[in-house]
Design a protein around this nucleic acid. Structure first.
Lengths: 210, 210
DNA sequence: AACTTTTTTAATCATTTGATTAAATTATTA
DNA sequence: TAATAATTTAATCAAATGATTAAAAAAGTT
C-alpha cells in the first residue's frame, strides 16, 4: 500500500520517529533551543516516550550529534581513502561528494561547527587525535607534491581552509549570499552544482600562483 | 589611578556592564543557551537590574544582535565605499580589514550566520533589501570588469562566496582546522595574517582561470 | 483464554528560568 | 539638611521544562 512514497515517515517505529524528529530539530536549532515537547510534537508521540527510549534529552542529543559528525566528516574517508588517485583527482572527487552531501543536508555544517566550538574536545576522539583518514592522506599527498616542482609550496592549513571554505561556506552563508545577490533558491543550488567543476579548477589555480 | 589598564571592565556603568556581559555570552553561545542569571553573574550585578535597564532578555539580545550585525557587515561599507580604487585594490583592502576584525572578534561570524539562518528576515532590513553599500559597488565593479577583456566572467554569487569563504571560513572552522592540522593557536593567527596577502592573489588567480 | 511483558498515556513533580515587587540604599535636588 | 528621585537588593511569582510515575492499552507467550 504505502511503500516509501517519498517524504512521509510511515512505517517508522516509535523510537525511529523520535530520533528523526530530534535530528531535524537539533540540527536546525541546536540543543538549547529545542524543547523535549517540540520533539514529541514533531514525532507525534507522547512526551514520556522520549525518556522511555532515550533516557534523557542530553543522551538523545549525543546520539544525533555523533551521527551528524560522522556524516559531515566520514564522507571523506570512504571513497577517497583507498584509490591511488592523483591529488587533483581526489580533490575533484571530494568536492563532488561533499557538495552532494551539503545539498541534501544544508543544516549540517553550521550544526557541526557550532558544536565543535562549544566542545572542541568531544569531537577530538571522533577525528581520532587529528586524523580524519581521507584528509590526512590528502595532506600527505599535498606535501609530497610540494617537494616536486609540479606545484609550489602551500601550508596544509591554508590548503584545507581554502578547500573546505570554498566548498562548505556557500551553504553556511546561503541566506546571506542570496539576500545580497538576489539569487533565488533554485538558482543557488544550480550554482552549487556548477561549483563541483569550478572549485577543483580554482584550487589548482591557487596552488599554481604563489 | 586605574585608567583603561587593559582588560578590566572598571569604570563601566551598570548598564554597560550588563551589556558587555550579554555581548560576550550571547555571541559565544546564542540566545537560548544563555540564562539571564549567567549574564547577571558575568556582569557582577543583581539579576533584577537586567530587567530594570533592558526590560527583557529578548530586548537585550536584540540590541546585541544588531550591533554584532553592524560590526560584521558594515566593516565593508566605510572605507571601501568612497575611494576610486580598482577591483583588486578594494579586495586587498577589504580582506585586510575583515581579517583584523575577525581576529579581534572570532565568535562574530558564527553568531551572525546562525542568526541569519534562524531569522533571515530580521537581517533583511539591516542590509537594506540586499544592499550592503560597499559590497554592491564591489559587485558592480566586478560586472563591469566582466565586460572588459581583462578578466573572464564570474557570477557575483560565486565571487562573493569565494571571497567571503576564503576570508571568513578559517575563523568559523578554526577548532576543526587546528585539530586536523595540529597547528597551535599562535601559528594559526600568524597564518591568518599571511592570508591578508595571499587571498587577494588567490582571488585574482581564480578570476583569471575560468 | 490466561498470563506476562512491552508500550503508551495522562497526570504530576521538582527545578529552572524570566520577570516582578516592595523595601532598602544611594544619589540628586531644593 | 530635608525631600525627591534613581538605583540596588532580596524575596517571590508564574510559567516553562526535563523527568518520573502509576495506570491503561497493546502485543506477545504459554
Amino acid at each position: 500500500m504505502n511503500q516509501p512514497t517519498g517524504q512521509e515517515d510511515k512505517v517508522l517505529s516509535t523510537e525511529e520517529k523520535i530520533k528523526e524528529a530530534a535530528r531535524k530539530l537539533f540540527t536546525q536549532k541546536g540543543f538549547a533551543a529545542v524543547r523535549t515537547r517540540d520533539i514529541a510534537d514533531e514525532a507525534g508521540i507522547n512526551l514520556a516516550l522520549l525518556n522511555y527510549y532515550f533516557r534523557s534529552k542530553q543522551k538523545l542529543f549525543d546520539i544525533i550529534m555523533l551521527e551528524n559528525f560522522r556524516k559531515f566528516l566520514h564522507i571523506v574517508s570512504g571513497r577517497v581513502l583507498d584509490d591511488s588517485l592523483t591529488l587533483e583527482e581526489k580533490i575533484a572527487l571530494l568536492v563532488d561528494i561533499e557538495i552532494d552531501m551539503l545539498t541534501q543536508n544544508p543544516d549540517l555544517p553550521l550544526f557541526v561547527l557550532n558544536e565543535i566550538r562549544v566542545n572542541p574536545n568531544k569531537i577530538a576522539m571522533e577525528m581520532h587525535s587529528g586524523d580524519v583518514p581521507g584528509v590526512s592522506r590528502l595532506l600527505a599527498q599535498l606535501i609530497s607534491a610540494n617537494g616536486s616542482g609540479e606545484a609550489p609550496q602551500m601550508q596544509p592549513l591554508h590548503f584545507l581552509a581554502n578547500l573546505i571554505g570554498l566548498t562548505v561556506f556557500p551553504f553556511v552563508g546561503r541566506p546571506m549570499l542570496q539576500k545580497i545577490t538576489g539569487v533565488d533558491e533554485d538558482a543557488f543550488y544550480k550554482m552549487m552544482q556548477e561549483r563541483k567543476k569550478l572549485i577543483p579548477i580554482w584550487i589548482k589555480a591557487i596552488l599554481n600562483c604563489s
